[in-house]
Design a protein around this nucleic acid. Structure first.
Lengths: 342, 342
DNA sequence: TGGCTTAGTGTATACGCTTACTTAATTCCA
DNA sequence: TGGAATTAAGTAAGCGTATACACTAAGCCA
């Protein structure tokens, strides 16, 4: 059918093993033979069969990506494309391909990962999220399969290479920023509470609130999904309060978009009536109106470093796990202002 | 190392082939044996090695995605995540995984595809774009490798299964819509001219202009990249004209974002001074201010149908190529208005 | 009872490549 | 000049699975 190593060998009048060595650029092969073999390969249009190679080799030159929910849903948030951009960049540099398993329910996703791992479809995995007591992460650890995590692992963080922002500090500083603008009633709109990023940022928020001697009120804290609809829900809850917040710390730009549109519908003006400080600084966050004041967490770099770390894990398994902290930066736009005096 | 079919065979006291048949759920195996083997598999935690299977099988259960430029750049446009959502949905239904090759230059991307194909890393390919005289597409046709295209192939469209909107008609209708609002100076902001979608829409635009007896002016036609910067460039060119257009047909929402922000900087009001009609209706197009009037081309469905068509190609290679037309729909928002009388 | 089906398993080989081990050819030095 | 050392290439045994073919045992009929 398609041309194999044997065909090349025959044409070049050498043994298949020699051809294999030429491919691997083995120094034991003389330049002359190499040239001869390469000519034969070109002539026949030979390309190694990857499966055969993987089988003999136990390596696939592919890395697997695991998303928190179905790719389906995740891709609604620009975070993921952007993080994949980062991963893709370094994967490309080292000639790795990306492999995405698909699945809707948690079970299906888990099964997909098991297939990736046991089926040796990939050499390693990048987890694009970190969740409390995540089954997949446990599994990968048990199997001693190379993987890295974007975000902070909930357990065993010292033994797992992970890439993260200092979310605690970021949230604390941002809350302090809002306080410095005169806000005293600050709401926190978080994502799912089993995501470590939510927890970290919530703790940072709490720290700042308490440091400032402000009351820490449970009703100011809302958790929704990382989507626009999540933001909409959150607003409704918060505005129904007796004393609604004058500022919101929102954990994700897409949620902020939802918040913004809902506030707009309700005739609440941003930032005059309510200030909004958001996280992620997604590519489109400057496009909303008003444009989002948001914390740039350098998503691209999160992806880049995660993949880089993974490749190191794969290439030197004995190397120690490490933590890479990616810096964040507040991008001031139009959704935050000093508290209005009434 | 990891558990193989032989281990299972030994434990279940059958031949490896029997185990293989159990996996394939071959009817020639008695229920009793199946049960016995399955128990052994569970006990040992057996999972088939995918590479071995692919090798023996000549199938990989993976489909490859080809993007127009590096994933890197492409992912800046929400079109791609969305189209992948569609692909991913059906891929999942049939237990296929997605495989993305990476590459920056055109050569690298081509090489990546060759590796996918010759290396038998995937069973088929979805091309996420259609370009004039595309090398990759030619190659796939030569190799008779299963693939489908999102967009209309420039050549041999009858022999290639492809999924497309009727872009000619869409652009024509949209231009007519602008004309019906009283606009007579309508600019066309297109993407790269070697993309078939650009050509089709440009032709539709031209048709409408001519039908209406309006002058078709070259200087109203601008081509830039499918990114925000592209939109910015376009505006600068068009506004520099003696008689700048009163309405713009923009081929992509992300470009429109660029157009919008630039117009805003220049103090040109949308839609009062200039109307804007855009294509794609990307998830975030309602977020800009003013929100974009845009043609919903049903990106998700484009992806879904493309993958579905591909799987059909793979499963019944003799089946005829077909063309699937995905309907479009104008979503009216805030960027179009009647021409202002002066 | 002998021969013919049929169902259920086993045997052996192929898939295309890598690599440990071997062999052949050459070089070099005493 | 003979033999050790070195270099270059070949031989063959996997890697884990699928499958064509072979085989056995049981059932059936004349």
């Amino acid at each position: 059918m398609s041309v194999t190593i044997k065909d090349v060998a025959k044409l070049a009048d050498v043994a298949p093993s020699t051809v294999s060595r030429v491919i691997a650029n083995n120094p034991r092969i003389s330049e002359k033979t190499k040239r001869k073999v390469k000519e034969a390969m070109d002539y026949l249009g030979y390309h190694p069969n990857f499966n055969a190679r993987s089988l003999a080799n136990r390596s696939t030159q592919a890395i697997g990506l695991v998303m928190p929910s179905s790719a389906d849903k995740a891709f609604q948030n620009p975070f993921f494309p952007e993080v994949i951009r980062g991963i893709s960049t370094i994967a490309h540099e080292q000639e790795y391909a990306l492999y995405m398993s698909t699945g809707n329910t948690e079970d299906e996703i888990f099964e997909g990962v098991v297939r990736m791992v046991q089926g040796r479809r990939v050499d390693g995995i990048v987890m694009l999220y970190s969740r409390v007591d995540d089954r997949i992460m446990c599994y990968l650890q048990e199997q001693k399969f190379p993987f890295t995590v974007i975000g902070k692992p909930f357990k065993n963080a010292e033994t797992i290479t992970h890439i993260d922002n200092d979310n605690f500090k970021a949230a604390q500083e941002m809350t302090e920023y809002l306080i410095s603008l005169g806000h005293e009633r600050i709401g926190f709109v978080g994502g799912n509470l089993n995501l470590v990023v939510t927890i970290d940022r919530l703790l940072g928020y709490e720290k700042a609130i308490r440091n400032a001697g402000l009351p820490y009120k449970d009703e100011y804290i809302v958790h929704e999904e990382f989507l626009k609809e999540g933001g909409q829900e959150a607003v409704k809850e918060l505005l129904a309060l007796n004393e609604p917040p004058s500022a919101l710390l929102v954990i994700d730009d897409v949620m902020s978009f939802g918040v913004l549109s809902t506030l707009n519908e309700l005739g609440v003006s941003v930032p005059d009536d309510i200030s909004l400080l958001s996280f992620n600084n997604v590519m489109l966050s400057e496009l909303s109106s008003p444009s989002l004041t948001s914390v740039d967490i350098n998503i691209f770099k999160l992806g880049y470093e995660a993949a880089k770390g993974l490749l190191e894990c794969i290439q030197c398994p004995e190397k120690e796990a490490k933590r890479v902290v990616v810096p964040f930066q507040l991008i001031e736009r139009q959704t935050c202002s000093k508290v209005s005096e009434k």
